[in-house]
Design a protein around this nucleic acid. Structure first.
Lengths: 392, 392
DNA sequence: AGCCCTTATTTTCCGCCGTCAATAAAAGAA
DNA sequence: TTCTTTTATTGACGGCGGAAAATAAGGGCT
């Protein structure tokens, strides 16, 4: 039973204000001068924008003076007070839901997960509501308000409308999830595709901070990709983008559930790796952990399966780099647990297939904890709260 | 000997003004109300922005009333007066240069081409200057000023700086072409990558008008791709993007000059098609026209070579569509002369390899005359003249 | 201690852009 | 004619952000 809470709104009316807030949020404590420089505004504008934000408690002046530059008036940096507001992010997978409670800086306070008994919208909604309730309870003691809920779902999601157009995993079509969840929880709700949500988190709080063009590649059951171009997350004209998983790497490769052969996912997806191990070693591997263990034990077939996967991923990334010329590619996802088994192949395949200066692209691997997906959802909620229609 | 001409500048100081001008330029005659709606501004703003533009002669009120809607005050559409200013676009290839004189609406008035005897920057500059001189002469009679020169070069070009970073074709490195050409011709010069220039032309004056996400794929000696995402042409963090030609289609395919195997270009580039025909039919084809003729005569090997090419292109386009989810893909380039030989294969391969809603992407073929590349260069000059830092 | 120098921040003032609301204009309809 | 309807224009207004000047806050020097 959600309390009818008066939604607090962010006190930044002008574009400059939200831009400055975002700048400070992403780039840590910043002096007003520095913030002005980064946002391309005058120092005066920063002073004016910052004051109401400090009064509302969203920004605070940093008290501890760091290394002072010796000369001139000491700078007085401001930073976002993460403790000013809380947000909840929920990631819905096929068989469980993961939720996190984060602060305004998207630092995780509490993480919970719960099984998902049924996949029908109603049942999922109930599970989400319960998990959100639990998280709200942990937040309830303090007088810090929870100001938004983000939900990440795989598939075709229209964030603007808050509708899940099509999710193969959940077998949903045109579910107005944002509206439903808002009614159930009483919170402002943002719904987005899971990979895009993770990309938002990287863009604002991770390895993509400050970059206007980068890609996030997720490795796990599926292979996904989130793209940031011109400082904005790419959504695609038809709601879907970044389908790196179904980029063909080898037309003579193994069949993929999408109907083609040799997709990245058909070689480097969890299931594909397990099947390959079974084919080459005869060992029936039940889950990914077992497959990794087998490879770590030195089983040649298992190692080869991971090597192939790494090569496929590297080629896929090279394709992205060739087409978009991003500044950086961040490889992440549960699959990175096996990181040491294919990192080298990824690098080699990328270097070989990247054309010209695309090879300058910085390819990073970034193992991520399981709550990271939910954190991505929280990041979208924070983004919606700040309502920064501006880029960067 | 360039006359010292006082560079006329565009009388649109405010962002709104240039945005409105661009809207009218791209969308033909528009009533003020309609222009306001499209640009997201108030009608009052349009009236104010339009007046100085009419006074300066860039806009005119359309005299001929079209189908009137019967009721209310008749609308008074405005359109861009193409004859108000002229621009020159030059495309530099390895062995010739092509130049066009266009009006402000990028309609071609005169097209010329000239052989390129030497590839050294100095020699190219001289050739360009001569061609520009010829075009200026044809324009000279009238009192219509030529307000800009665009130069399109293949390779890594930094448009902002006006520098050709690296052009393998011309064997140039870090040539400050814009500055040099400006000195030689006395015109404001814009230098850009050739495929990007063509993309700009499509975005403003072609099949990309009004779309915020689309791709242009060029088929010819090489296979190129220009991308528009979020309403802006993608340049890539390292100056290069859209390298669809070196996307791998078949790792077991023919070797490519880039060092890999089975790149789109290694299968569907002009040279690759000719080689394939030679291999399968034994006939030594000297040029593309001959290859096309052979295929049209029904030679099975030649037809097969084109079919393979079509399949490779279709797969490449599907890769773009899967990654970016564009609204439309425009296939163009000299290679489209053989359009009937592989259009079907492109379509089929695209449909097979496009994943999910990426298949909704509208794939168009658009045969383009040889001067089109130069027209793209002119489009960049027009764009620079209007100095629209805004998108769309 | 007082003064100067440097750098950060704030204040004040100002221009200018775009919206709002009212008004004019140009038909056809009554 | 007069009203209605739709488009264009005008003028007042508010607000945003910039420029420049003033102020603040040290530290070093004499």
């Amino acid at each position: 039973m959600p309390s009818i809470r008066r939604a607090e709104t962010f006190p930044a009316n002008t574009p400059a204000a939200s831009q400055i807030f975002t700048t400070v949020l992403c780039h840590g404590p910043l002096t007003r001068l520095e913030a002005a420089r980064r946002a391309g505004l005058s120092p005066a504008a920063v002073t004016k924008a910052v004051r109401p934000l400090i009064e509302a408690g969203y920004l605070v002046e940093d008290v501890d003076e760091p290394a002072r530059p010796a000369l001139g008036r000491p700078a007085n940096p401001v930073r976002v007070d993460g403790g000013r507001a809380l947000f909840i992010g929920v990631k819905v997978t096929g068989d469980e839901i993961i939720g996190v409670l984060t602060d305004l800086c998207c630092r995780i306070r509490v993480a919970r997960h719960a099984p998902l008994p049924h996949r029908a919208p109603k049942a999922v909604l109930a599970s989400v509501a319960e998990l959100v309730g639990e998280l709200l309870a942990t937040a309830g003691d303090a007088d810090v308000p929870v100001l938004g809920l983000g939900i990440a779902v795989s598939g075709d999601v229209d964030r603007g409308e808050g509708v899940v157009r099509y999710s193969p995993f959940l077998e949903w079509r045109d579910v107005p999830l944002a509206e439903l969840a808002a009614q159930t929880t009483g919170l402002p709700v943002t719904v987005d595709n899971d990979v895009r949500a993770l990309t938002v988190a990287e863009q604002w709080f991770g390895a993509g901070v400050g970059l206007s063009d980068f890609a996030v590649v997720t490795v796990g059951a599926g292979i996904g990709c989130g793209l940031v171009v011109h400082g904005r997350v790419v959504a695609g004209a038809h709601g879907v983008a970044g389908e790196i998983g179904h980029v063909t790497v080898d037309p003579a490769g193994p069949p993929c559930h999408c109907g083609n052969r040799g997709c990245v996912e058909a070689i480097a997806g969890d299931a594909a790796i397990r099947r390959r191990i079974r084919e080459t070693t005869g060992v029936e591997v039940a889950d990914t952990a077992q497959a990794v263990a087998l490879a770590h034990d030195g089983a040649a077939g298992a190692r080869e399966a991971y090597a192939r996967a790494g090569e496929a991923i590297g080629r896929g990334i090279a394709t992205v780099a060739n087409l978009l010329g991003p500044e950086r590619v961040i490889i992440s996802g549960e699959g990175l647990a096996a990181h040491d088994l294919f990192a080298e192949q990824i690098r080699d395949a990328f270097a070989a297939a990247a054309f010209g200066s695309a090879a300058q692209c910085d390819v990073q691997t970034r193992p991520l904890p399981f709550e990271e997906w939910a954190r991505g959802a929280a990041a979208t909620a924070i983004q919606s709260f700040i309502r920064a229609d501006d880029q960067r």
